[in-house]
Write a protein that binds this DNA or RNA. Sequence first.
RNA 1: GGGGGAAUGUCCCGAGCGGCAAAGGGGGCGGACUGUAAAUCCGCUGGCUACGCCUUCGCAGGUUCGAGUCCUGCUUCCCCCA
Length: 413
Amino acid sequence: MTSQFSPKSDFLRTLMDRGYIHQCSDFEGLDQKARSGMLTAYVGYDCTAPSLHIGNLISGMMLHWFQQTGHRPITLMGGGTTRVGDPSGKDETRKLLTVEQIEGNKNSIKGVFGKLLNYGPDGNGAIMVDNAEWLTKLNYIDMLRDIGRHFSINRMLTMDSVKLRLEREQELSFIEFNYMILQSYDFVELARNYNCSLQMGGSDQWGNIVNGVDLGRRMGTHQLYALTTPLLTTASGAKMGKTASGAVWLNADMFSPYDYWQFWRNTEDADVSRFLKLFTLMPLDEIARLSALAGSEINDAKKILATEATALLHGRAAAEEAAETARKTFEEGIAAETLPSFNLPIGTGLLAANVAVGFASSNSNARQLVESGAVRINDVVITDTRRILTAEDFRDGAIKLSMGKKKHVLIKA
RNA sequence: GGGGGAAUGUCCCGAGCGGCAAAGGGGGCGGACUGUAAAUCCGCUGGCUACGCCUUCGCAGGUUCGAGUCCUGCUUCCCCCA
């Protein structure tokens, strides 16, 4: 158990103190190695979507601290493995993405790492590689002889990712079955070419990672290590990262800094301390002070969490702006100029307006919401479904339209 | 190759004697209570030019006043035997 081990290396101590560690293949060994010089570690990222989401942010933060404590991080883009598809934790086969989609996603994902890591030529400058570089060049027969012979089908069948599918009598295609072999090989490849000795990832990656450690031993690399983070859940046990509009994406064009700030602002009380440690760079003693706040005072801690987490990802200026927009909107009740705005002509029906700004999915949906008293024009509840936006509704050239307590937009003519 | 099952509201799971816009969950959204929290309670959760109309139960036909429900063919998936 992690709690019985007290690490001496800066790296592991930092990770443990901040709550990043779930499992490690060999704590003592890794700790010792981290004290004896610069290590190289990597995390692999799927290219299944055009942006990473907050679930991926934890491993990215681990790489950040890894670098901060003097080591060299590698971000591995799964340009090759995404063509195969990871069956871990999935109920059914995902549709295969085209190579073009994968390349597009890869390029769109890359940007976020520049916020967390320093790339560059200096001693421990981060490195970015794409496993398509070597995986697409593998020759089938050679691969079977060099790599495949080290894998036991008997053991592969006991891996969770495989076992689950078999037990549930769900299809597991041959291509997916091969995924763990490729990911394992990645580790060996990075060990050989970059002297990489540690792979980190989410707890669902444990099986894939230890397979790589194993393959390394069989193929004669130096000792490799596995380190995983806990699954990100709220204190109530719900999986994190999903909201009404989908996942909490890290790319600003898919999830705005303001929404991102709001996401963290709405954290459950019981999660504040944990999230401050995981998703901000604040010193632990400062976090301890904030965590001690009780009752409604903990809202101050939530604002700091939101601002710091947003600043880390989107920059200080965007974070301050989001905080200010929120303050005006929620604490002063005035329409902040920086709220999301839409252009709609005077005379637009209230229902149509709600659909246009994304509050409702259809006129019917909008009608129901209006009737239930959820919709406000300039902070006045409107229940008339035939209401039309008029010139008199404009205050300083804009109408503040609200859905529920939290969603507000400005409408301009 | 032979035999037996399955496919339901496009978020998911899942009931469904021939009268069904289709039970029940989960999730989501909204309301109340609060602190932009949690828990709890209530409402909504196919669409529309809306006391009515239109479109939905794998696909295509058929029987019937009427089909998610019965019949035929097809597709996909699963299980057993070979």
